[in-house]
Design a protein around this nucleic acid. Sequence first.
RNA 1: UGGAGUGGGCGAGGUGGUUGCUCCUUCUAAAAAAGAAGGGGAGGAAAGUCCGAACUCCACAGGACAGGAUGGUCGCUAACAGCGACUCCGGGUGACCGGAGGAAAGUGCCACAGAAAAGAUACCGCCCUUCGGGGUAAGGGUGAAAAGGUGAGGCAAGAGCUCACCGCGCUGGUGGUGACACCAGCGGCACGGUAAACCCCAUCCGGAGCAAGGCCAAAUCGGCCCUGAGGAGAUGGUCCGUCUCAUGGGGCGGGUAGACCGCUUAACCCAUUGAGCAAUCAAUGGGUCAGAUAAAUAACCACCACCCGCAUGAAACAGCGGGGACAGAAUUCGGCUUAUGACCCACUCCAGUCC
RNA 2: UGGGAAGUCGUCCAAUGGUAGGACACAUGACUCUGGAUCAUGGAAUCGGGGUUCGAAUCCCUGCUUCCCAG
Length: 117
Amino acid sequence: MKESISPKERIRKKREFSLIYKKGNRYRGKYFIIIYLPNGGSQSRLAVVAGKKIGNAVKRNKAKRWIKALYRRNKNLLEDSTDLIFIAKENIFKAPWKNLQKDYAKAIEHINQKQSM
RNA sequence: UGGAGUGGGCGAGGUGGUUGCUCCUUCUAAAAAAGAAGGGGAGGAAAGUCCGAACUCCACAGGACAGGAUGGUCGCUAACAGCGACUCCGGGUGACCGGAGGAAAGUGCCACAGAAAAGAUACCGCCCUUCGGGGUAAGGGUGAAAAGGUGAGGCAAGAGCUCACCGCGCUGGUGGUGACACCAGCGGCACGGUAAACCCCAUCCGGAGCAAGGCCAAAUCGGCCCUGAGGAGAUGGUCCGUCUCAUGGGGCGGGUAGACCGCUUAACCCAUUGAGCAAUCAAUGGGUCAGAUAAAUAACCACCACCCGCAUGAAACAGCGGGGACAGAAUUCGGCUUAUGACCCACUCCAGUCC
RNA sequence: UGGGAAGUCGUCCAAUGGUAGGACACAUGACUCUGGAUCAUGGAAUCGGGGUUCGAAUCCCUGCUUCCCAG
């Protein structure tokens, strides 16, 4: 299993963001919020939002990197191809790596169940 | 040994493994996509956006006004509110640090207190007196600030009225590119403070900003041009013809999404030599060092080094637990300012002790 | 990324460089059988740090926060 994220696997256009915000479902995790929408394509896609509330530029980048790493490491968990927007919360910097992984696994499980129904 | 001053260096600690991101080159190959190999990949402040430029577009005969910025002198620089050296003033025992045009061009302001806050009709006072008035500014108290200061002479009482020293101003000389310094003489000296109040003087300044600007260009709507058989209407007594409207086909230019250029080789960096007190400049040789766009440097693990705490101990090693700042390029440079853990280096000052 | 504006009691606004004021809100008391309204009294602030000045909310530097504009 490859663990890369190529440009095709990212959400980049403002129009696409608006669509997902409008029609997608939300899951509130402990350290982040996920907005997800099945896209019917061949690949899942990803975007991370880290707002100004979280901190300065260094902190925002760090949050993005962590969430991207989570996604890469656990690509195979997701069953259907889905567009995902992650919104990082402030407490993400206090979390140990293992808790983040648990929280992520729980979130993906939740999404899989919802979509198979 | 302790305390302090100035300037500078380094700053995701190092090595390895697994998995990843971005750009360039070569190859798979003829192009795109994809893959493989090799190489490059954050900072001293990248930050705040406080100044100054480069670059691009717009405006522009020339001159004047308005508005803004700067402000000791000389130098450096592409430019600057920057930097260097020097001058004067103020602070500090000292190393050192901070400040800087003009108040005699004019206007304004100086609360309260005080007689008076500025070219003094002087409140109390002192002295003289023909009792009408006159001469004074030593002393008093107020205030942030009170009309040169101290001492002596002098006088009715006093006063730069006179003298000495200090301060201030003017003139001349000498030294210095200059700010200014030193020396001599003269004036006796009514002429505060505030220009980060208006202002005056000198110097500089057109506006907007890479979301600048350029180039290519879907879909849709509308515009213009060409054109086909037929349709409707107008002209006409009717047909042909001509004109208008709707429609089919083709083309054109503007322009949106989007793509590309701008986009990284530059007032660049390093070394040596020379000029200069220095900032800096010159010559020679070498180097290429991020270019992303929902936005790249990371995640996890192991070991080693450093620091802190715990416990043992005379001390150290081993052990356990924890820690490593401020902070992320976005057109590019030169500065300023602010944030910053640990460590290191150079020079200097003060105090104590010893030799 | 670039360009601009503003910070005064809890809130909304005032204030020539000279004692920071008003309204609403809050607290206490009076009035009332009680509450409201009314009356009286009181507390509470110049975004932080420097500088100029005898004296700064105001003038000058420098940071911080908030808001607006440009696709």
